[in-house]
Design a protein around this nucleic acid. Structure first.
Lengths: 348, 348
DNA sequence: CGGCGGGATGTTTACGTCAACATGGACGGC
DNA sequence: GCCGTCCATGTTGACGTAAACATCCCGCCG
């Protein structure tokens, strides 16, 4: 394997080491240290000198070398985001929010995607990739096989987990899943439905479990019978399959789907089987995707703020990086019921 | 918080410099160089020594410092992705594909989100953030105010643009937008519709323009009248508004929406105004989102492979990084017509 | 008018890694 | 048994930056 080197001999890829401070210094007729001072905006530099250095920088096309800088300061000014299922609605939104929150702080984001959220993959995401190249890590993984006892992180690396599981001993940020599911269920109950069916997300997902339990608890608190759970996997297709089964049962008048995508599949199944929504069956989703307002009929759903989750996660992580102290309490963000046209009182 | 510091004095943020090769070397009773050799899997190390070093590494929790490594070899083994509108369906998919393609090569991804795709922001994304911290850059920006004459990139930094615009002098990869739009339009024509209306994406988007032009060209080639373009902005809401206008015109029997989200809004408008789909109006979308198969009715659409785009972009970029030569021809990936239930012959 | 303070600037050094060169011991050929 | 070779290992230095310390010059005060 003929790897190329930076030395003069190599005929290959032409390692383009850009101009360094030394080059700028020579060009401006000052010492490297003065260049460094200018580059870092220190005040104790004569105005004329500063101008001269700035001009020299421009002339030679100087760019600070972040590797050298990181080596020197022991800080990378970047955070890692370990993420699975990136294209997912919630995850991509959250990632975007994280990115937006992190950039103004002068940090950058290193993506560490894992194809499947197994322990090995996650642990590997740390060591294999950027072990030391980040100042902190945000973990955004939905199916948390992650067991804190097994996951092995370098001690002292700040970590924030986006998940409402309490199983970690890292700071945790998430939307309040239980709160949302309770709102959805109560809404249907208050419309007069005698009970509410539920299409659940995959059992490995903590969020899914949380929603399911809260739905069940709400029903029980109201003294209603708890229908058997219909299993889904977040996908529209699974919602469709579940919907086909539900639609066949005339008892079913209200369904709470654990996310909007499954609600969409459910709506399709209801249309196909001639059950009118909301006249015959009411439907509530969860997420409030941009599309949901334009489903047919427009979907009543639970809005959660991925933006807020991202912002809080970054805030907690940066605080930990700066101060060295872990944020204490888990952060649970409130959700909101958005009423549209897919819910109504049950048929008379 | 008994955080450990390397230096005794500093009371600040607690620089937790991890153990270095020197520490491992001391622990194992060898020189730093031998540790380096073991860490890099060189062969010329005695088996017993290797074991001893490995054990020492484990004991002290050694992790290679990527900053020092990058400084030393002048390579970062990471690529930057400048991206706007991350949560967008296509972009998040593409990003995921890029990530997946890049990881097995031992590269990592640095995200550089830009909130608005202006020149300044994009240029800033380079300099402000990771100027020297990446070996190459993929630009994934839909509204390309980017004018190559103004955008100022460090010379010699490999760049690949994901966009079918030919305006860049960087290698370009994208789905074949024109091909897809032609398929959509032809499909409707072949069903017997006399012409096809179009809800376009925002004019700043090259993809949107490409689709619009191809739709128009296809109509003209077939000798049909070209109805006025209805302007949208990719959002379901804009599709809905456009749909309201279109639905009022009984002439309209076939509509090609420039993406699935607008098609969704259109479907809703059609339902609300009592125009049956596909009996009265046929609809074709573009993208084939996961949801589209479960729209009501299931949407006929153009599938594009974001995965392939991501893969090709990475391939081109890595090739350029390794060899220093730009990939020549733009890569245009073929699209596919997916026929579902939203299209049919026009009403008799 | 000499010394002192302070601001501007220069010099040295260390951050962690790895290529290049140096060393040193074992082994084989004659 | 002597020398050349090869292989394991050690030593040195450089990558680009910035903190710490050193120096120099100027003006001001006693």
């Amino acid at each position: 394997m003929p790897r190329q080197t930076a030395t003069s001999s190599a005929p290959g890829p032409a390692r383009r080491r850009g101009p360094s401070m030394a080059d700028v210094a020579r060009e401006a007729g000052v010492s490297g240290q003065t260049v460094s001072r200018v580059a870092n905006g220190k005040t104790n530099v004569d105005e004329a000198t500063r101008e001269r250095v700035l001009a020299a920088m421009r002339r030679v096309g100087y760019r600070p070398n972040s590797a050298a800088r990181a080596l020197r300061n022991g800080q990378f000014r970047s955070i890692g985001v370990i993420i699975s299922a990136l294209p997912t609605f919630g995850n991509s939104r959250t990632l975007d929010a994280i990115a937006a929150a992190v950039v103004p702080e002068g940090f950058s984001i290193i993506l560490m995607p894992v194809t499947r959220p197994t322990q090995g993959e996650v642990t590997g995401a740390f060591s294999t990739l950027n072990e030391q190249a980040v100042d902190g890590v945000i973990i955004l993984i939905e199916q948390h096989q992650l067991d804190q006892s097994e996951i092995e992180l370098p001690h002292g690396l700040p970590v924030v987990v986006i998940d409402s599981s309490a199983r970690y001993d890292y700071p945790v940020v998430d939307n309040d899943q239980a709160d949302g599911a309770a709102r959805a269920t109560s809404h249907l109950l208050s419309l007069g439905h005698s009970t509410v069916w539920h299409i659940a997300g995959p059992p490995q997902s903590y969020s899914a479990e949380r929603r399911r339990k809260s739905w069940q608890a709400t029903l029980e608190r109201a003294g209603r019978v708890v229908p058997p759970v219909v299993a889904g996997d977040w996908s529209p297709e699974s919602g469709y399959q579940a919907g086909l089964r539900l639609a066949a049962d005339p008892e079913v008048t209200a369904v709470f789907a654990a996310n909007d995508q499954m609600a969409l599949g459910l709506l399709r199944a209801l249309h196909e089987t001639g059950r009118a929504v909301p006249a015959s069956v009411s439907v509530v989703g969860f997420d409030d995707m941009e599309e949901s307002a334009h489903f047919w009929p427009p979907l009543t759903t639970i809005r959660q703020s991925f933006e807020a989750v991202g912002r809080h996660a970054v805030k907690a992580l940066l605080a930990e990086i700066e101060t060295g102290t872990e944020a204490g309490e888990p952060v649970l963000l409130p959700t909101e019921l958005v009423i549209r046209s897919s819910t109504a009182p049950p048929p008379a």
